[in-house]
């Protein structure tokens, strides 16, 4: 499968990345090379093989429903780029 520059732009927007013209160009070349490289996978016969998500396959790791102390509001907001006394602030969600 080959990757087009429309693909690159669509993917960049999905990932909330804004690419400059030069980045777009160099990423197109590099992404093409990487995608060709990983296309080797298409040659492997995987019929009847279950996907493997975890390196070690565990099940049913559950915690009891008991409240434990979290962070204070001060701690929660401490690293935020913008906040008021109570809340995180972000630029307007609506245009």
């Amino acid at each position: 499968m080959s990757i087009s520059s429309t693909d690159i732009q669509r993917v960049a927007h999905l990932a909330r990345l804004q690419l400059s013209e030069t980045e777009l160009e160099s990423y197109s070349v590099q992404m093409k090379a990487i995608v060709e490289f990983v296309d080797q996978l298409q040659g492997v016969d995987t019929s009847g093989v279950e996907p493997m998500v975890h390196a070690i396959e565990l099940t049913n790791v559950l915690a009891d429903d008991q409240v434990r102390n979290g962070l204070s509001r001060e701690q929660a907001l401490a690293n935020s780029p913008d906040h008021d006394e109570e809340c995180f602030r972000v630029p307007a969600v609506l245009g």
Binding site: V11, T46, V49, P51
Partner: peptide, 18 residues
């Protein structure tokens, strides 16, 4: 992303088991 998941991600997970 839509249209590529099976060919890449899912495929890679299967190869991972092999």
């Amino acid at each position: 992303s839509a249209g590529y998941y099976d060919a890449y991600y899912l495929k890679a997970l299967k190869v991972r088991r092999l």
